[in-house]
Measured scan of single mutants.
Amino acid sequence: IGSLMYASIFGNVSAIIQRLYSGTARYHTQMLRVREFIRFHQIPNPLRQRLEEYFQHAWSYTNGIDMNAVLKGFPECLQADICLHLNRSLLQHCKPFRGATKGCLRALAMKFKTTHAPPGDTLVHAGDLLTALYFISRGSIEILRGDVVVAILGKNDIFGEPLNLYARPGKSNGDVRALTYCDLHKIHRDDLLEVLDMYPEFSDHFWSSLEITFNLRDTNMIPGSPGSTELEGGFSRQRKRKLSFRRRTDKDTEQPGEVSALGPGRAGAGPSSRGRPGGPWGESPSSGPSSPESSEDEGPGRSSSPLRLVPFSSPRPPGEPPGGEPLMEDCEKSSDTCNPLSGAFSGVSNIFSFWGDSRGRQYQELPRCPAPTPSLLNIPLSSPGRRPRGDVESRLDALQRQLNRLETRLSADMATVLQLLQRQMTLVPPAYSAVTTPGPGPTSTSPLLPVSPLPTLTLDSLSQVSQFMACEELPPGAPELPQEGPTRRLSLPGQLGALTSQPLHRHGSDPG
């Protein structure tokens, strides 16, 4: 009997000691992992102490058991019943959930998450997105703005933001810190809205009876308010094209079509300037034949640059190039080494500058006005007194259609001029006259002087055409309008007829 009692007592005591040691061994194993994590990542002392304290409290609170892992091991129907039991206190005593059906309560219970916070733990920081609604079931918390405590909340209090009033989550206007050990039930806004969409009859009752104890939403960050730039940057990543407008005076608003859609830094370009900076079609017209890549860069430059609305530039004389043409100036200075066709295309550029300027006046029909002061630039669209967005969009579309028509007509005119030049060069190729044979009589004449090349004649003739079109064909006081194609086609051969009437002889060394 004594040996039996000794064996039973010894066996029970050893089993008890073994169970104690097993729990202690698990605790030390998990604690060792936490300390190894702290050492590996070199976490500083204040945060390291918070980690160790939280682990110790969580171990004593749950005995080292992962409740979520245990809950996920059950089937979904059983999980709903378990969640309904775990959140029964909240669902029974909170006013917004009263009167809900059994199915609605089960769906809500599945969406709730339980959070346990030790003292000093910050649940929400200032500036964080308010993605959830919090219900306090135990403990107390404090809300701070800077170093000032603005509120202390306790059991059955609710904090967050009214989700039904805002389409997008706002930002917190303060820090939420736990004063004691707290148990909180939180539900994400997407989950709550999903359940309320499934039960629309409960939705009206819920929003009407929901009383948020403390609204954390920062009202200064609401979209459309003066301080909402940061919020707009976070939620409006896919922005449309940006529009900046110059201020319109009362006198300017009476004149229709007073602005032109141009790229940034293009205030001095012609009315047909689009795409790359520098001139019509993204580059100076005089350098068009020598740089074919300008047409390839036109599309990307047009689509990537934001639109700006600026006044037209001052008018340019008909014979003056659009500006920024070092290529043609070098050719004029060193005409001995340049291609003979460069002079002809220089005359073509003069005609283009004249036609572009006159067509700009035809479509816009307003006098040039000086540029406004820099303080009046970049007025935002949302400022008071601005035109409605639809009106601005319609004006932009009208300007775009005008620019497209202008570009089409300029292309047709350019093709006409090039065809005339090619026809003239085919009839009378460039050549130098040879020395004529002296006559049989004693009164022999001296050799004839060489005839100037055709490109120079073409430049003079085209300059005469531009001056003739600019000065004589337009009646005084009438708006400057571009001439039609047949009129220009008839004027060019008439001007060139006198020049080509002389018999030109080919030089023996000319390969053409």
Results as ranks from 00 to 15, higher is better:
134 Y>I: 03
431 A>N: 13
404 N>S: 13
419 Q>N: 05
317 P>F: 11
466 S>P: 09
267 A>E: 11
191 D>E: 08
128 D>Q: 06
152 I>M: 07
446 S>I: 11
147 D>A: 04
429 P>Q: 10
483 Q>L: 08
509 S>E: 12
318 P>H: 13
136 I>D: 01
463 S>N: 11
349 S>H: 08
239 R>E: 12
481 L>T: 10
321 P>L: 15
454 L>V: 11
465 V>P: 11
152 I>R: 06
352 F>V: 10
158 I>H: 01
334 S>I: 13
358 S>V: 09
439 G>Q: 04
406 L>T: 11
280 P>Q: 04
471 C>R: 14
180 T>V: 04
508 G>F: 06
346 S>C: 06
302 R>A: 12
245 F>K: 10
238 Q>R: 11
316 R>P: 15
417 V>K: 03
433 S>A: 11
211 E>V: 09
254 E>D: 11
162 P>R: 10
474 L>F: 13
451 V>S: 06
222 I>W: 13
502 Q>A: 12
342 S>Y: 11
228 S>N: 12
313 S>I: 13
328 M>C: 06
495 Q>T: 11
233 G>V: 10
139 G>N: 01
256 P>C: 12
251 K>N: 13
315 P>K: 04
221 M>L: 15
422 Q>N: 04
455 P>M: 09
446 S>A: 09
350 N>Q: 09
339 N>A: 13
195 V>F: 03
479 P>D: 11
270 G>W: 05
304 S>T: 07
447 P>N: 14
507 H>S: 13
316 R>C: 15
363 Y>F: 15
363 Y>G: 10
143 I>D: 01
154 G>K: 08
398 A>L: 08
214 F>G: 03
176 V>P: 02
480 E>L: 15
430 P>E: 08
374 P>R: 08
196 L>K: 02
233 G>R: 09
314 S>M: 13
144 L>S: 12
245 F>S: 10
322 P>M: 15
387 R>K: 15
369 C>L: 08
454 L>S: 09
233 G>N: 07
198 M>E: 09
477 G>Y: 05
395 R>L: 06
263 G>T: 10
196 L>H: 03
244 S>W: 10
335 S>C: 12
247 R>I: 12
408 T>W: 05
159 F>D: 01
212 I>R: 02
226 P>C: 04
464 Q>G: 11
143 I>T: 02
239 R>P: 07
463 S>K: 14
342 S>H: 13
346 S>E: 09
410 L>K: 04
197 D>V: 07
357 D>W: 13
189 R>H: 08
463 S>G: 09
415 A>C: 08
379 I>T: 13
438 P>Q: 08
397 D>A: 10
409 R>T: 04
286 S>V: 11
315 P>S: 08
176 V>S: 01
395 R>G: 09
317 P>D: 14
212 I>D: 02
160 G>R: 02
471 C>A: 06
155 K>Y: 04
447 P>R: 09
450 P>R: 10
361 R>C: 08
483 Q>P: 08
318 P>L: 06
184 L>H: 01
460 D>A: 09
141 I>R: 01
493 P>S: 05
261 A>L: 12
296 E>R: 10
372 P>E: 08
247 R>C: 11
215 N>W: 01
404 N>I: 04
422 Q>L: 04
402 Q>F: 13
238 Q>K: 11
360 G>Y: 08
174 G>T: 11
294 S>A: 15
206 F>N: 03
400 Q>S: 13
467 Q>N: 05
384 P>H: 06
309 L>T: 15
261 A>I: 13
387 R>E: 09
447 P>I: 06
273 S>A: 10
440 P>R: 10
379 I>S: 14
220 N>D: 14
187 I>W: 01
419 Q>K: 06
140 S>Q: 12
349 S>E: 10
433 S>I: 12
270 G>F: 05
215 N>V: 03
414 M>K: 01
494 G>W: 13
211 E>A: 09
424 Q>C: 09
462 L>R: 10
266 R>C: 12
181 Y>R: 04
395 R>A: 09
211 E>Y: 03
154 G>W: 03
237 R>M: 11
469 M>I: 10
174 G>F: 09
424 Q>M: 09
383 S>R: 06
478 A>F: 13
169 P>Q: 08
342 S>Q: 09
351 I>C: 08
201 E>R: 04
387 R>I: 13
373 T>E: 09
342 S>A: 13
363 Y>L: 10
131 T>W: 13
412 A>T: 04
253 T>S: 13
178 A>Y: 01
242 K>L: 11
459 L>A: 11
312 F>A: 04
444 S>W: 14
193 L>T: 06
140 S>H: 12
464 Q>N: 04
242 K>E: 11
226 P>Y: 08
161 E>V: 03
383 S>D: 15
326 P>T: 01
209 S>L: 07
127 G>H: 01
147 D>T: 11
458 T>N: 10
493 P>T: 11
170 G>A: 03
174 G>E: 03
329 E>M: 12
246 R>N: 14
179 L>V: 10
453 P>S: 10
232 E>K: 10
325 E>C: 07
449 L>M: 13
213 T>N: 09
461 S>Y: 06
475 P>G: 10
186 K>Q: 13
427 L>I: 13
406 L>H: 04
454 L>T: 07
424 Q>W: 05
273 S>P: 09
168 R>P: 10
339 N>P: 06
382 S>G: 10
501 S>C: 11
421 L>C: 07
273 S>G: 10
